[in-house]
């Protein structure tokens, strides 16, 4: 009789343990799914802004061309960078091409300084604000994406969530680094 009682206790205990483990695994699993969704969502935000920038460029070039006849090279490099960026197939490729586009655009904005007529054009001014904002939005979306990736990657690598991640095949995601020679330069410190 006492033996049976002990057996029951064992079963109950075991059952309880399995239940607790299941709840923990479900919790971790949901956390991982949430993290992955956040990464995907943040990526789609970047995507939206990148597309917006691609759409903006023809308009910008068209407006500026009339004022800047001697800057053919600048326009060519922008157009080329744009078509390369639009053809990018994965995060790594997109990082590189978008970096080149960012560079080309910031060079263009520097050149604009030499054309006061263009800077006074109302249409161009509003395009410039849109471009500035789009560049910012890309930067902020990238920031949010990288934050989400970091949190998610930490979950896939840290104990104990890494076990659940391994079981259900949650893989590490890539950061979105802008491959820009200008951005990688060490900032000069002025005193």
């Amino acid at each position: 009789m006492a033996g049976l009682g002990a057996m029951m206790m064992m079963f109950l205990l075991l059952g309880g343990l399995v239940l607790v483990a299941a709840v923990v695994v479900i919790g971790i699993y949901n956390g991982l799914v949430g993290g992955r969704n956040q990464v995907d969502n943040a990526w789609s935000q970047i995507d939206v802004q990148l597309k917006r920038r691609h759409d903006l460029i023809p308009n910008l070039v068209e407006t500026a061309k009339g004022y800047m006849q001697h800057e053919r090279q600048t326009f060519e490099s922008i157009t080329q960078a744009r078509s390369q960026a639009m053809g990018a197939k994965n995060v790594a490729e997109a990082s590189k091409a978008e970096g080149a586009l960012t560079d080309a655009l910031s060079k263009f904005m520097l050149v604009v300084e030499n054309y006061p007529d263009l800077k006074a054009n109302q249409n161009f001014l509003s395009l410039q604000e849109t471009l500035t904002s789009t560049e910012n939005k890309i930067a902020f979306a990238r920031q949010a994406y990288n934050d989400a990736v970091l949190t998610y990657n930490n979950k896939t690598q840290m104990f104990p969530s890494n076990i659940v991640a391994g079981m259900f095949n949650f893989t590490k995601r890539d950061f979105f680094e802008i491959e820009s020679p200008a951005e990688r330069e060490v900032p000069k410190v002025k005193f």
């Binding site: 956040q38 935000q45 904002s133 902020f140």
Partner: peptide, 16 residues
């Protein structure tokens, strides 16, 4: 006010 709107949207994106 396009700039104000742009800035609010920028921060909306940054803060998700």
């Amino acid at each position: 006010h396009p700039m104000l709107f742009n800035i609010v949207e920028e921060m909306k994106i940054a803060a998700q």
